[in-house]
Amino acid sequence: MHRGQFAGVQFCEGRAPQTVITADEPDCHLSFAICVQTRGRAMLQSNGDVYPLHGGEALLITPFAQLQWNAADQHAECIIASGGPVFSLRFRPHRRHAIRLGEDDPVGLLLTDCIRRMKDFVPASDSTIVQKMGEVLADLIEVALDEAAEATSDQIFLSSLQRIEELLDSPAFDVNTLAAELGMTLRSLQKRFYQFDTTPREWMAQRRLERTRRKLDDPLLASRSIKQIAFDCGFRDFSHFSRSFKSAFGLSPRAYRP
C-alpha cells in the first residue's frame, strides 16, 4: 500500500487483499473519502454499510471514522483520496452521504480524473500549485455533495406530492392547503415548483385532469356521468373542466370517453 499526502488530503493506492484507512484519534471522523476502483471488484465498508465496487466506478463517502476496502478478486486495485478535519466545515460533517460518482455525471468524471492525476502529479509539484489543486478538489467534492442533497430533497418532495394526490378529490383542497400539508410556506412551495417549470396551481389542475381521464377510461365507472366524475376529482365548474380537458388532451370529455 502506497500513501502520499498534501494540503490535508491523503492519497492511498489499495491492492488486494485489503486496505484500511482510519482517523488518528478514536473519536475523530475523517471529512471525506473518494474510492476510485481502477481494476477488478471490491467491497467498501464504512459507517456500518457495505458498498460493492466494479472497475471504473467511484464512491464518495462523508464523514467516516474508518474505511475498509476488501478486494473481491485478485486483480482488484483502487485509489483512495481522504481528507481530515481541515475540510470538515466545508463538508458539513453532521450529514452522512454515500454517493456513487457515475460515468455519466460530469462532476463524478472530473473528481475521478482529478484524483487519478493528482496522485502522481502532486509529489513533484510546487507547494502553491498543490494548495490550489487541493482547493479545486474540495470545490468539486462540495458540488457533488450539494447535488446529492438536492436530488434527495427532490425525491422526498415528489414522494410527498404522490402521497397528497389522493386529497385533490376535495374541491376545498387549494394551493394554501397544499402548502400546509407539505409543511411549507406558500412562497417556498412556489419556488419548489418553479424548479420543475410549473406552479402549484398548474400542478394541481394537471393532476386532477389526469385523475379524471383515468376514471373516464375505467369500464367500471361507465355508468357514472362525466359531470359526476369531474366533481369527484375536485372540479367545481363543469364548463371550466371541459375546456381544460380539451386543451390538455385534444378532445372534449364526451368525445374522449369510449
Rank of each mutant, 00 (worst) to 15 (best):
A16E: 04
D73C: 09
L178S: 00
D139P: 06
D126S: 06
L101M: 07
K191P: 00
R214G: 14
M43S: 07
S82D: 07
L60H: 15
E103K: 07
A248Y: 00
C78Y: 01
G250H: 07
R39G: 04
S247V: 01
G234M: 11
M184A: 13
G134W: 09
L168M: 03
R39V: 14
I115Q: 00
N70A: 12
R243L: 10
Q10P: 06
R257W: 09
L44A: 06
G134A: 14
D232K: 12
D237W: 06
L221V: 08
Q74N: 11
W203F: 01
E142S: 14
A76R: 06
K119R: 15
C35Q: 10
L220N: 15
H29A: 07
R41Q: 11
L182F: 05
T152M: 14
G56W: 07
L53V: 13
Q5M: 14
Q206H: 07
G250R: 04
F173E: 00
N47P: 03
P63Y: 01
A16M: 06
G250S: 03
A124Q: 15
L140A: 09
R214M: 08
A179N: 01
F121K: 05
I164V: 02
S159P: 05
R163H: 07
D27C: 00
T62G: 04
Q45K: 15
V143T: 09
C233F: 03
A98L: 07
A230E: 03
